[in-house]
Amino acid sequence: MIKKTIFLLSILASSAFAHSAIMNCFDNADETITCEGGFSDGSSANGVYFIIEQDGKEIYETKMNENSEVTFKKPKGEFTAILDAGEGHEVYIKSKDITQ
């Protein structure tokens, strides 16, 4: 019985962490970009770090709001939007891949 309980707990623990970070960004056509985040298991990204990098430097940092979104002023030139939910749970979107 103890072996079955331990086995069941290990399956539940591993499935609890079995989710991937997801993010989609779109150009609002008003010089702003909106990015929406979440997780493959349907979890919210509320409070998850969001970063904009340009030329290898962090130029903007905030957290996803209660709707798992962030809207920011579109930087001039190429940049990367990053959802950073911790090691193994990062999403990188290059500005060239963001469309209206």
Rank of each mutant, 00 (worst) to 15 (best):
G86T: 13
S10E: 06
F39C: 02
T71M: 00
H89P: 04
V91P: 05
H19K: 10
G42N: 13
H19V: 06
K74L: 04
E66H: 07
A85Q: 03
F39T: 02
F26W: 13
T71Y: 00
N28E: 15
A81F: 02
H89S: 09
G47A: 05
E90Y: 03
E36F: 04
Q100S: 09
S10R: 08
F17I: 15
T80G: 01
G86E: 06
S20Y: 08
A13P: 01
T5H: 05
P75L: 00
F79G: 11
E69A: 06
I93K: 00
S40W: 07
G77P: 04
I22Q: 11
T80A: 01
L12S: 07
E36H: 07
D55K: 08
K96F: 01
F72N: 04
I52C: 04
T99S: 10
F39N: 02
E53T: 15
M1H: 10
K96C: 00
N46C: 07
F39H: 08
G38R: 11
E69Y: 09
D41M: 01
G77R: 14
S10C: 13
T34E: 12
D30P: 04
V48E: 12
K76W: 01
F39D: 01
F26N: 11
N28V: 12
T80V: 15
G42L: 04
I98Q: 02
Y92R: 14
E31S: 15
V70I: 15
L83G: 03
K73P: 00
G77I: 04
F79Y: 15
E66R: 11
D97V: 08
Y49T: 13
M1A: 05
D84Y: 07
I51K: 07
I2Q: 10
N46V: 08
I82R: 05
S10I: 14
K4G: 08
F50V: 15
I6C: 02
Q100T: 08
K57P: 03
N24R: 11
M23Q: 12
Q54F: 01
M23W: 09
C35N: 10
S10W: 02
S44N: 11
Q100P: 14
M64K: 05
I82E: 08
I11R: 07
D27T: 13
G56T: 14
G38T: 06
G77D: 08
G56Y: 09
T80D: 04
